[in-house]
Design a protein around this nucleic acid. Structure first.
Lengths: 231, 231
DNA sequence: GTAAGGACGTACCGGTCAGTAACATTCTTC
DNA sequence: GAAGAATGTTACTGACCGGTACGTCCTTAC
């Protein structure tokens, strides 16, 4: 059997972890992986809480929330576990903080890009599409943290889901707001069609990478928008 | 802090598990959840291997691969752990078998629907879209198992990824094959645009459910296809 | 100089993870 | 009813999970 007994051992700061390919054993980090968020970066050494947060944010996004244990976070951050639990009540709490941070960052970036696009609603809509197209053209992109969280945690009462759902609803509202300002009879349909394309670009990136269908986002969105514009 | 100490305890067949909301502790199943695949269903009692497979297939899809432990699988299947390891070399092995099964089932279903749609390529293309639209209209839908696996396991060498990638490439090839048969100059762009919409429908279902943007799949795909047809 | 308090680390907890060994029991088939 | 296959029972392993009791160090203030 091809997958039988497949496991790999790596050493990080004299701690060795085992990781089954589909297993839950997650306290592992690849040798020389650049997730060291505080102990060796240039500039003033950040305090433990900041390093924990930055490291967790990066690791959760790169490898998934369930896949990353608190041991790995503190190890990568160059701190110890009690430091984590002095700043965050639980792993759940840290996860929520990271998700909120992703959402805030996304909101701020989009604000800036829309601002830069000027007052014309169609131009602003294309600027929004270009923003997402730009994200998916990055090979290091690992999809939308919000969508990834919803995939990882299907339970309806998961607190991460509500953060993700709120964030996505905001995006939908923003697109709808723009769609209502352009000359179309069906802004809702256009909005949802564009959302499908954007989320599809996120999703196909997971499978096909940055050279896959996500490269067609701008073009497809353009055709969809065109089809909704009155002539 | 709102999420502090959030945990829930449930009992299943006199075994109690604890589950942190974002934790790895996964050997839990909601009370009265209908995942019992063998011990109480009508009809002849399946053998242990079949029950393990059916249960795992269901649980992995419904809750995620990392979230489901072997203890929970055997517990839900009404068998014991040695029975699992007599049939499958490892959890990895069982996961791979389930993924292959999802892929095979999807291929078979699509074959049948295309067959039923007749010889006309445009009709076949719409039949394919309708197939995906039908999936996402089901509230119990939990996205595409292949995409979900790619999200859960970002590591390039994960064996589940290669199964998922192969399956998705097949789908892309099938759409491209149909796109090449209809009257358009850019079958590749149309294919990738349709893939974005399909994957977007999968993805938005995770966040917005069956009443969300995924309901626009057929309509959006129709407009995109129209825009590619020569006039 | 020294006391106080914050920041941080050492070493541990109980529980769950995937996986196994040894052996008992039941089912099927002839 | 014997033989052999299939399955269950029980107990265990080493590693990792999230989380914590408690000790140490380092800065600041007097």
């Amino acid at each position: 059997m091809l997958l039988t007994g497949t496991s790999l051992r790596v050493t990080y700061r004299s701690v060795t972890f085992r990781q089954g390919l589909f297993g839950n054993n997650s306290a592992m980090v690849a040798k020389n992986q650049t997730v060291d968020c505080g102990s060796s970066c240039g500039g003033p050494r950040k305090n433990a809480a900041a390093r924990i947060f930055d490291t967790a944010r990066e690791l959760f996004y790169r490898r998934g929330i369930r896949a990353v244990g608190v041991d790995e976070i503190v190890c990568s951050a160059g701190v110890t576990k009690p430091s984590l639990y002095r700043s965050y009540a639980s792993k759940d709490d840290l996860v929520a903080a990271c998700l909120t941070s992703y959402a805030d960052e996304s909101r701020t970036t989009i604000d800036a890009k829309l601002e830069a696009a000027g007052p014309e609603p169609l131009g602003r809509l294309y600027a929004l599409i270009d923003h997402y197209a730009g994200q998916t053209s990055d090979p290091d992109f690992r999809g939308c943290p919000m969508t990834n969280t919803a995939v990882e945690f299907p339970e309806a009462d998961n607190p991460g889901r509500s953060i993700a759902e709120t964030c996505k609803s905001e995006v939908r509202d923003r697109i709808l707001d723009l769609a209502r300002q352009i000359d179309t009879k069906e802004p809702e349909s256009l909005t949802d069609g564009l959302l499908l394309l954007i989320e599809g670009a996120y999703s196909t990136h997971h499978i096909f990478g940055s050279q896959g269908p996500s490269g067609c986002l701008r073009k497809s969105a353009g055709r969809l928008i065109e089809s909704y514009l009155k002539r």
